[in-house]
Write a protein that binds this DNA or RNA. Structure first.
Lengths: 353, 353
DNA sequence: CTGAAAGCGCTTACAG
DNA sequence: CTGAAAGCGCTTACAG
């Protein structure tokens, strides 16, 4: 495919008056070559603009110097941000970064069945993807190192946030504002409803409510798949309960925005009638003044990459790293009105009980 | 790095009772092998779970079967969406997808200086990145095929939208609503202010205004770098002119949201006082009811990938593909009030002239 | 249709 | 410190 013959190690060696073996050593290993020789070879390599063939090197060493990034979505901010962080440190460490988009179950299946066997990578980073036991075994079988970025399982080394803590923070923020009837829009992954993350986030809500002796109305906990439009629909359900919630906690900022749209369309105001809080601190959250729980996504990517590199070097890094989250108060949450009757903006039938 | 010895072509050949050469042909080329032989080899390969070593194949053929995606940002929806489209068809065509994040000028420089020489890829697609003449020459020198996704230069094959047309549509939408004092928040790339895209978008505005005999107040055309916060600041400038605009056109949805925040904070309403229109149809635009010009981003990625594949196959595809855009009317734009004085919500000094 | 042989461009024990 | 040699796992003319 490449036009003009590229200069090879042999060319450099000849030009420098040494054997290919010595040239190779001079260019790679620190020791075992006379300083003068090393310099001469380096100089020639530079002059000839020599660059080693990665294929040949890989074939000879059995190492690929590349890692696979397994990502379920690319069109959502969270994933792009995470990948950006990963790419940065992996690339800087001299690794090639292969992108694998495995949106649906089939795609993921195909990935785990083929990639490992292809020996294309030394490691794989799964970005917030739940990995089944079977899939994990495939990977381990082939000896590739695996790390989770934004993952939540403790099955392999990971860097993520504490999902339960994030939701707990959001819940406590609302409780502090005097809210008691707090609704939650829970997100689940369409093809893996047993995914632990939801248990984590959902758990944080129950913990905070219980700890503060606030009863939970199960009618106010609705579940849907990730996405603003889905959340908007879920919010419609919440507006249909007998007594409206005074606050809504969504599992993501996108979902919070979806909920807000429904609230507004119903003629209610945010935060006067209903407070809304999201999770993420999506870059647009700032622009729409959305109160949220900030999670450091890019940092998770950076740290996960460092974790992977440490593992690859044979070190014993901390295999379970959780990054802190914190509430970012903006203008979609406000004090709950004590005298709130819930009937003011009621839909038909709401005042009945 | 990999644990157990993987099964090689030689293993398959031995097991099938043929030479490695024949095994190779049986597995790859369609012709030149007896049907029975081919089947036997295929069967053995399957049973042994044989997968060819990509390194060896590449070294032997001189082809890499992989393409580089050069992306300036990963944290913005536009880029993630584009990459998603590209990855899908490239992966399906059997190519590896290498991700190169080249945010700053140095990163881009490093990429163009090193990558081509490394012969790691057969092709590169630049995602909305302006490529200098020098950089393009480097690539061509090495014989790699190059394609632009979302690019705007006509220097190499590309798939994009017609920037001028998109802005023209937005402008005409506002004109049709009766707006005359239309402001535009123009976006520029921080490190390449001479980038043609801005000329394209900006041009569409001038064309539409001129064509409709509406005078342009240069005070209402402000320039800033991409980003909601920057646009919010640019909007402050627009609120400082003597006579306020009745509508604002932003070069992206993020920017439109930034402008809206400033407008609201100034005590003005959208769209009653000032209409706002963006460009993109970002997924969140729907949730905040933002009127915008929709561009098919994922499609651009898909098509660009197909364009690249066609080029790689030696075909002669259409080297300049522009995808259509269209206005998506939501609730941030409304009819201009004829009786608008511009003084109602004025800041100090605004009424003076 | 099939096999023996050379080669792709490196790396790395093994000797000196 | 340095070189000759073998090998990494394929592919592909070149003969049959």
């Amino acid at each position: 495919m490449n036009s003009s013959r590229t200069v090879s190690l042999a060319d450099v060696a000849r030009e420098a008056g040494v054997s290919p073996a010595t040239a190779s050593r001079a260019l790679n290993s620190a020791y075992g070559v006379a300083a003068a020789t090393r310099e001469r070879v380096a100089e020639v390599a530079r002059r000839l603009e020599y660059v080693a063939s990665p294929e040949a090197a890989r074939l000879a060493t059995g190492t690929t110097r590349s890692v696979a990034l397994v990502v379920p979505h690319l069109d959502r901010w969270y994933f792009g941000e995470m990948v950006g962080g990963l790419e940065e440190v992996l690339r800087a460490a001299g690794h090639d970064v292969l992108l694998y988009h495995v949106g649906d179950p089939e795609g993921r299946h195909a990935f785990f069945e083929h990639l490992p066997a292809r020996r294309k990578v030394d490691a794989v980073v799964v970005v917030a993807v739940p990995v089944t036991d079977h899939e994990r075994r495939r990977l381990e079988l082939m000896g590739v190192t695996i790390v989770a970025a934004g993952g939540q399982d403790a099955m392999y080394p990971y860097v993520s946030i504490d999902d339960a803590a994030a939701v707990r923070q959001a819940t406590e923020h609302l409780l502090r504002l005097g809210h008691r009837r707090i609704a939650m829009i829970t997100a689940v992954d369409p093809d893996r409803t047993d995914q632990p993350i939801h248990r984590g986030r959902t758990r944080g809500f129950y913990e905070a409510m219980t700890r503060n002796d606030v009863p939970i109305d199960e009618e106010l906990v609705v579940t849907t798949t990730w996405g603003g439009v889905q959340a908007a629909e879920a919010m419609e359900k919440l507006l249909s309960v007998r007594e409206l919630p005074t606050a809504v906690l969504a599992h993501s900022d996108e979902m919070a925005l979806g909920a807000m749209r429904t609230i507004r369309r119903a003629g209610l105001r945010v935060p006067e009638d209903i407070s809304v809080i999201g999770i993420d601190d999506h870059p647009l959250a700032e622009l729409v003044d959305l109160t949220t729980v900030r999670q450091p996504v890019r940092d998770q990517g950076l740290q996960a990459a460092h974790l992977l590199l440490a593992l690859l070097r044979g070190e014993q890094p901390d295999r379970a790293q959780k990054l802190p989250t914190r509430v970012v108060v903006r203008s979609t949450t406000a004090t709950a009105r004590i005298d709130r009757s819930g009937a003011e903006h009621s839909a038909p039938g709401i005042t009945r009980h």
